[in-house]
Design a protein around this nucleic acid. Structure first.
Length: 224
DNA sequence: AACACCGACAACCGCTCGGGG
DNA sequence: ACCCCGAGCGGTTGTCGGTGT
């Protein structure tokens, strides 16, 4: 019986069986779900498939700028606690956020030749990435006033002892935060120049983030 | 056209935790 | 107090499609 367990990609038939069962009986008791439906899957596998793919109200597609910003902030607060982070990203799954972090964020760290959990990379995020995301979000909200950005910011609780608050201006140092709105701030802006993130893709915020100019700037101001 | 490489996503695995007997 | 089992979580691996050579 044990060797009867099926692995690998789910078929449409399996999805249908699982979806219909959970819709009628609700979530939970995943091992009995597997038994009752006749699916040759483990309870674990059924649970994962439901949570990551079949569950209603799942958001598919690109991670938005707001979501990216939120992920960066929440990760700095909670680290790799994906299930906690995903509480503030409705419709997203922990798997999705985890994959995003591994494939996109860690790639940026690699480009900077530092560990994703290092202070160096944290500074780079704080001083470069987050301000630029905020910039783009603000620009986008000006463009489409009818649909302003909808950041779902979690309240800080007593249990949260980290420095993070949900006002980016408190994250970004004074001399840097000006770069978000005040282009006269030479240090903050000059190193990057306008349009470091520019691109024609819908979600290009990570593309060419660490240009030669940006890396040079970071080396001068952070890495020495 | 064929192959290699890479990124994104799906799925699995191992561990931990909590509840019930 | 201990054990067992189900559920959840985070890390890792597998797969597939796109892109470059």
């Amino acid at each position: 019986m044990v060797d009867d367990v099926k692995k690998g990609p789910w078929t449409a038939e399996e999805d249908s069986l699982l979806y219909n069962y959970v819709t009628v009986h609700g979530e939970g008791h995943w091992n009995s779900v597997a038994r009752s439906t006749g699916l040759k899957r483990t309870g674990k596998s059924c649970r994962l498939r439901w949570l990551n793919y079949l569950r209603p109200n799942l958001r598919r597609g690109n991670i938005t700028l707001q979501e990216q910003l939120l992920i960066l902030q929440l990760h700095s607060r909670w680290g790799n606690r994906w299930s906690k982070i995903v509480e503030f990203l409705p419709g997203r799954t922990d798997n999705e956020i985890k994959n995003y972090w591994r494939t996109r964020v860690q790639k940026q760290a690699k480009q900077l030749n530092c560990d994703v959990n290092s202070q160096r990379f944290r500074d780079a995020m704080r001083l470069v990435w987050i301000p630029r995301l905020v910039e783009r979000i603000e620009a986008a909200s000006v463009q489409s006033l009818s649909s302003p950005p909808s950041l779902l910011l979690p309240p800080c609780t007593d249990a949260d002892t980290s420095m993070l608050t949900w006002d980016y201006k408190s994250i970004v140092p004074e001399h840097m935060s000006g770069s978000c709105s005040d282009t006269s701030d030479s240090m903050a802006v000059d190193g990057f120049g306008a349009g470091w993130w520019e691109g024609d893709g819908v979600d290009s915020s990570l593309e060419s983030l660490w240009t030669e100019e940006n890396i040079c700037f970071l080396q001068q101001h952070l890495f020495d």
